[in-house]
Design a protein around this nucleic acid. Structure first.
Length: 127
RNA sequence: CAGCUCCGUUAAACGGUCGCGCGGUAUGUUGCCGAAAGGUAUUACCGUGAGGAAAGUCCGGGCUUCAUAGGACAGAAUAGCUGAUAACGUCAGCCACGGGUAACCGUCGGGAAAGUGCAACAGAAAUAAACCGCCGCUUUUGCGGUAAGGAUGGAAAGGCGAGGUAAGAGCUCACCCGUUCCUAUGGUAACAUAGGUCCGCUGUAAACCCUAUUUGAAGCAACACCCCACACAAGGCUUGUCCGGCACAUCUUGGGGGUGGCACAAAACUUUGUUUUGAAGCUAUGCGGUGACGCAUAGCGAAGAUUGAUGACCGUUCACGACAGAACCCGGCUUAUAGGCGGAACUAAAAA
RNA sequence: CUGGGUGUGGCGCAGCUGGUAGCGCGCUACCUUGGGGUGGUAGAGGCCGCAAGUUCAAGUCUUGUCACUCAGA
């Protein structure tokens, strides 16, 4: 497993209400410092800090097929950027209106712009 | 040829790079747990991975818990007949009625002659009749008879002719139409045909109701087991060995989590697991049946999550890709759907 | 996932056993006032979520369908 998924519903609410926010053309990004990161780091066998990532797709996007499509391309976009990011955060990504009919590379570009704005990239990486 | 009707089938293909769930094999010395055996993270390889509707949740069955001596009533469901099926409100064939030239399609298709209700407006009158008219008697106003004619309405006492009468009327008769019952013939039956007989009855039962048949209730968020815990948990934020929670201070709840159910079953050997056998189901072939379907043989017989896997990107080709995503499992129904392929049947009129 | 409920003028609601669809607020015009509010008098605005069916007749009954909404660990 390359990344850890965010499972608890209350953490989503927390991230939405308290996290830093960025709205791009196709996606919205919410980022919050993960207070449980230290504990998770300890429990993690490899002793490494990591981000917890989640996707939030509401019924507004469409039927089950459209929602699945949205989740897949959002995950694909995140997977491409993941290793370049700072660790120890909760990251939630939600699609916007135009999400259907675009490619995952478009999502990746949008996400990259969002993370740059939120100062999420590692220092040695040029933005 | 064209048009039209019905049935079946399919649900873009191939290559490259990266990635996900599940199962298996190996790795697991360097990461973790453990005294060890071993387990595990990880990594590599192999296998496998959505639908014809997975949908709507409209029916039936399995499964589970609760209730239950037996019955009756009530409630609910179904409604031509015969069959198919584990079962059904489904399916097949047939009957009746309606539509179409036809192939064929459609029908919640029992009972209104058991009872009750309702039928607005219009109309004299709506299940019962006298407004006009017609006739008789009185006399210029009434009384009586009358349903042939008029106007209303979805519906007005069966139609038409003759007899009959003061005028009329199934009042009587012939024919026709419809209906109840009886007989004969054909059919398992619904029913059809023919003859006789009685009657002339408004519609509505997707109004109450009557008749026949069926029917306990809830649902996998059911339910079973295990673990953690009331100085605890879920969660919260000011991220503190804080609040929740013991003087003060800080909200809310009283439970939370896991496994099984759940990815077919049984037996044998055994620690996991392996092997064997056999069901559902699917495919092919054969046989029986008009058909739904049944029987026999052979092969296959591994989707299984819990923020929820089956994908992302690039390239090539073509008919340029519709509706759409499993969540306990099956059998149907209904609804949505770009096209492609195959088969069968019919053709009146018009055009050629 | 499972089981319920609701769709009626612009908004909030009635409409019980089928018979020409109403109420309150709002809107328009006029009267009242020097002007506005208040008050009064008129009026507009509805294929009753959509589509079939039963019936002479459907907001109402039946079936399908589309939205919205509530409850259940």
């Amino acid at each position: 497993m390359k990344y850890t998924t965010l499972k608890e519903h209350h953490l989503y609410n927390k991230t939405f209400s308290r996290g830093a926010r960025y709205s791009g053309q196709y996606v919205s990004v919410f980022v919050l410092r993960d207070y449980a990161a230290k504990r998770l780091k300890k429990e993690n066998p490899e002793k490494k800090a990591y981000n917890r990532f989640g996707v939030s797709v509401t019924k507004r996007v469409g039927g089950a097929v459209q929602r699945s499509r949205a989740k897949r391309i959002l995950r694909a976009g995140y997977r491409a950027i993941e290793p370049e990011l700072k660790t120890g955060y909760l990251v939630v990504v939600a699609p916007k209106e135009g999400i259907l009919g675009i490619k995952s590379t478009d999502v990746e570009r949008d996400l990259r712009r969002g993370f740059a704005k939120l100062d999420m990239f590692l220092e040695n990486k040029t933005v």
